[in-house]
Simulated assay, not measured.
Amino acid sequence: MNGLLRKVLRFGTMISATALLSSALPGCGGGDTDGGEGGDGPQGSERNTYVLVHGAFVGGWAWDKVVPLLEAGGNEVIALDLPAHGDDQTPLADASLQAYTDAVVAAIDGASRPVVLVGHSMGGTVVSQAAEARPDKVKTLVYLTAFLMKDGQSLNQEWADDEGAAIKAYAVPSSDGTSLSFKEGWAEDAFCQDCSPEDIARLESNLRDEPAKPFGEPIHVTEERWGRVPRVYIEALRDLAISPAEQEQQYTALPCERVISIDAGHAPFLTKPNELAQALRSL
């Protein structure tokens, strides 16, 4: 099994997540909705299956505050550890973009219905590849302050151009170039400057060396497959890991059906779980 599956079971509209707390939005084009409003689940009675894909330097545990909020609406939620992350014991040398994609595709294949596929940060590259592999099994693609890139681009290329990504100053490559780690202060100064002391402590206690290879591997997506899956972008307005300007550049170059704004740093799943869950439930 690729990682621990913890089965805890194109630019149209821009809206803040705060507004979503008081009013559900219409469903994305491409989704099957009945037009109802209110209720705990999407569109009243409709239920979703969410596959949540974490980013670099964290694991599936990062979604722990969000999972019960989604489940409370009757949704199915699958949060997984990518290879060499969280509790997964895959060797760093065996971690690759393809290995990450295979783990997510396995989660999609194990779901009971087409999924809302959510990728955070580095996880954006993974969900793009997974949607390319299983376009008919992905209801909606959600990029949560994530890398939304064109075919042939790599995360390293995209990140290098982001002058507002303060966290880059904390990243330290290993002597052999196979992994990355962080300097002291990374969590509270750049990754999650709006986190509570408790959340900072959890980030630091769960920190593992990050496989470097996937950062340099280009994604391969096509308009015929990945391109036909409806896309939503959730931007974080105070992000210091992927700057707001970089996020906007990405969702402008590859338009999404909706852009939702959350006033948070890079980890809204820790700092704004209610707003994030409400945004996801609206899809």
Rank of each mutant, 00 (worst) to 15 (best):
A106V: 04
R6G: 01
G185Y: 10
S196K: 06
A264G: 03
A279L: 12
G3R: 10
G12H: 14
A24M: 06
M14A: 14
K213C: 00
L82T: 08
Q43F: 06
R202Q: 14
D162A: 09
V67H: 01
D161G: 04
V116Q: 07
E184W: 00
L69G: 03
A171E: 10
N2L: 12
L80M: 13
L70F: 11
T90F: 02
S243Q: 08
S16W: 11
A279Q: 10
P135E: 09
W226T: 02
T18H: 12
D239Q: 03
H266A: 05
W61G: 13
T13G: 04
R258I: 13
F147Y: 15
N156Y: 01
E217V: 02
A267N: 08
L280G: 11
A245R: 11
A130T: 04
I234C: 11
L240M: 13
G110V: 05
D189W: 00
Y170G: 12
G41S: 15
P211G: 02
D109T: 07
G164A: 07
G38D: 10
S243P: 05
N48Q: 14
L25T: 10
S45R: 14
A103F: 07
A17Y: 08
A106K: 08
G35R: 03
A19W: 00
D40W: 09
E132G: 06
I167D: 06
A253N: 11
V126E: 03
A79Y: 03
T178G: 11
G86R: 03
S205D: 14
F11K: 10
Y233W: 02
G27T: 08
A79C: 12
S154G: 04
D189S: 09
D263S: 14
A165T: 06
F182E: 02
D81R: 04
G29H: 07
A56D: 03
D151E: 07
D199K: 07
A17M: 07
G29M: 02
L80H: 09
E76I: 01
G119S: 09
G27D: 09
P214M: 11
Q247S: 12
L180H: 07
K150V: 01
A62F: 01
N75H: 15
A171S: 09
A212C: 02
T13V: 12
D263R: 02
V53E: 05
S205R: 12
G110S: 13
D109I: 00
V127R: 08
M122P: 00
E37N: 06
V105D: 09
R47S: 12
G39Q: 03
A236P: 05
A245E: 15
M149Q: 14
D209V: 07
G185H: 10
P83N: 05
